[in-house]
Amino acid sequence: MIEQNSRTLLEVQDLHANVNGIEILKGVNLTIKSGEIHAIMGLNGSGKSTFAKVLAGHPAYEVTAGTILFNGQDLFDLKPEERARAGVFLAFQYPIEIPGVANNQFLRLAYNTVQSQRGKEELDPLEFDDFVREKMKLLEMNPDFLDRSVNEGFSGGEKKRNEILQMALLEPMLAILDETDSGLDIDALRIVANGVNQLANKDNAIILVTHYQRLLDYIVPDYVHVMEAGRIIKTSGKELAKELEARGYDWINAKSHHNATGVQV
């Protein structure tokens, strides 16, 4: 929601990044304020997932130019775990399976690590169990998921729900949801979207990285950005997603000189 008294959470300026020596991001500019939901859309290979991973600090992505301020702090000064503790959260497109580690053990470890770094109270196993079960209701998750190994043997939808559960536990200021809608059937999509909507508030912000408009029927963005060839080439309101769905990405290409972010194309 666009708020009057919001503050700037994220300020990305002229961000360039390489993977294996190939430039993928070629000058991304984006400003996000608290309370806002931004959708970043684009075709495969446009750089949107790379952007998400750069924000989270993935070591395979090398930033070659530009700045990112998160909550007034230079994000590049922070390691991935420090970003997580500072309030950046990435919901993975392909959540990692960790056989041998029980989900509840993992969730509690992540929760307590982040809590202690934020100077807040840690929870013992019993307290955490109550706490996490309450959060799981938000995502209509079966408590059985606590005893299973992290993401092991989970269906696509179950993995995505587990990601949003982690978001609920870690209470990030900025949550980046990388293709959270991919691989979800319509019921799972509704449950996940409902969970995200309940977690969104005036103090945090959410970036939805997605290929399709479908997710945006359930989580309504304040802004829609279109990415292509490593840049944001168009920014508009939520109606842009509908237009993209109807007319395809080619339509943007033809009109890309109407770029709203001020980048010369």
């Binding site: 070591p59 990435l90 960790i98 041998g100």
Partner: peptide
């Protein structure tokens, strides 16, 4: 990286993964 993105240090992540293995 997955574990780091959840707040665990590099060392804590390695220890957890080795144990889990």
């Amino acid at each position: 990286f997955y574990l780091q993105s959840r707040g665990l240090s590099d060392l804590a992540a390695r220890n957890l993964l080795t144990y889990a293995f």
